[in-house]
């Protein structure tokens, strides 16, 4: 589904990703872990198409198509979803209104007819239950004045509505208490299917108690320095990142 080969990216003159290789197949959940400043969020942003980063080398194929050539909106329409670490507050634009626009733009890209108001509302009601989000929140300006937990639930709600093939969760656990974390994780788990894949970017292991990954990768200084099964996450939780740093430095 997703093939990242030797991906390099920088911001200004600062090189952040120094050759990432990663293969994600349908149905899989990959966790990307690593210390602060290792490039985790940069990887998520580059995949979603944020313009602040310059891709200086390598390639990313999504279902055989060159992802890096696509505008962010086309990546979304192809089936990629980024749950933001810091969801943006947009005064004057309600979640409902913007999501309807988004869904119908995506449907247009795929050659489908737009959803009418009734179909859209029915779908919305269904997905609201998934993340236990309130209608009144969705009628308000997008994320404006939302608590940290509400913002993250709104991200997962949008994901549920857009049903992406590949979801990228960027530090979705940051700023969440344990109850909010559980709700968010349940939302993600209910969307797991053999056709869909998820990349979970996180600093801590605790999210992975709820969203159990198939693979864990450790990103350090812009490279994936270690990959392993889910148990790797426990090891990191127990021992921290220093032993990996030491391992890398000695090589």
């Amino acid at each position: 589904m997703l093939t990242i080969s030797n991906l390099q990216a920088s911001i200004g003159s600062k090189e952040i990703l120094k050759g990432i290789n990663l293969e994600v197949k349908p149905g899989e959940v990959h966790a990307i872990m690593g210390p602060n400043g290792s490039g985790k969020s940069t990887l998520a942003s580059v995949l979603a198409g944020r313009e602040d980063y310059d891709v200086t080398g390598g390639s990313v194929l999504f279902e055989g198509k060159d992802l890096l050539e696509m505008a962010p909106e086309n990546r979304a329409a192809e089936g990629i979803f980024l749950a933001f670490q810091y969801p943006v507050e947009i005064p004057g634009v309600s979640t409902t209104n913007f999501l309807k626009t988004a869904m119908n733009e995506i449907r247009k890209y795929r050659g489908l007819d737009p959803l009418d108001a009734v179909q859209f509302l029915k779908l919305m009601k269904e997905k609201m239950k998934l993340v236990n989000i309130d209608q009144s929140l969705l009628s308000r300006s997008l994320n404006e004045g939302f608590s940290g937990g509400e913002k993250k639930r709104n991200e997962i709600f949008q994901m549920a509505m857009l049903e992406p093939k590949l979801a990228i969760l960027d530090e979705t656990d940051s700023g969440l208490d344990i109850d909010a974390l559980r709700i968010v994780a349940e939302g993600v788990n209910q969307l797991r299917s053999p056709e869909r894949a998820t990349i979970v970017v996180t600093h801590y292991q605790r999210l992975l108690d709820y969203i159990v990954p198939d693979y864990v990768h450790v990103l350090y200084k812009g490279r994936i320095v270690k990959s392993g099964p889910k148990e790797l996450a426990f090891e990191l939780e127990e021992k921290g990142y220093d032993w990996i740093k030491a391992e890398v430095e000695t090589v």
Partner: peptide, 19 residues
């Protein structure tokens, strides 16, 4: 905000209009 809307599938010009 523009990137956020685009990342949900809304083309840039539409996203600008919306904002």
């Amino acid at each position: 905000a523009l990137f956020y809307l685009q990342s949900r599938g809304i083309p840039k010009t539409e996203a600008q209009s919306l904002l």
